[in-house]
């Protein structure tokens, strides 16, 4: 087991705990869904870059993943706030 993988897993579990915790707070606050989505986006990046080793790939694949996440989080947030 690599130390980076252990660190990544620990971070992923901590982020999961916090996203679940934030969801229990007052959902009328506009920033809570955005915060949950950003934390989930970080988890998505950790899995793809560290576990799937996208960090070693051509910049096209890294950019595609990041661009997809930014678009997804932006659209969901905009629809949610509308």
């Amino acid at each position: 087991m690599r130390k980076t993988d252990i660190f990544t897993l620990a971070l992923l579990i901590i982020l999961t705990f916090f996203t679940a915790l934030f969801a229990r707070k007052d959902s009328t606050q506009w920033w809570i869904p955005l915060l949950i989505l950003i934390l989930s986006g970080i988890k998505f990046l950790l899995v793809s870059f560290n576990f799937m080793e996208v960090k070693k790939a051509h910049s096209f694949w890294k950019t595609s993943i990041i661009l997809y996440l930014v678009l997804f989080i932006s659209i969901v947030t905009l629809v949610h706030l509308s």
């Binding site: 996203t19 869904p33 949950i36 989505l37 988890k43 998505f44 899995v47 793809s48 576990f51 997804f72």
Partner: peptide
């Protein structure tokens, strides 16, 4: 499968 679940979990269960 992890990646798909990481999209589903916040959208369905949390926000």
């Amino acid at each position: 499968c992890d990646l798909i679940w990481l999209l589903l979990f916040p959208a369905l269960y949390l926000i």
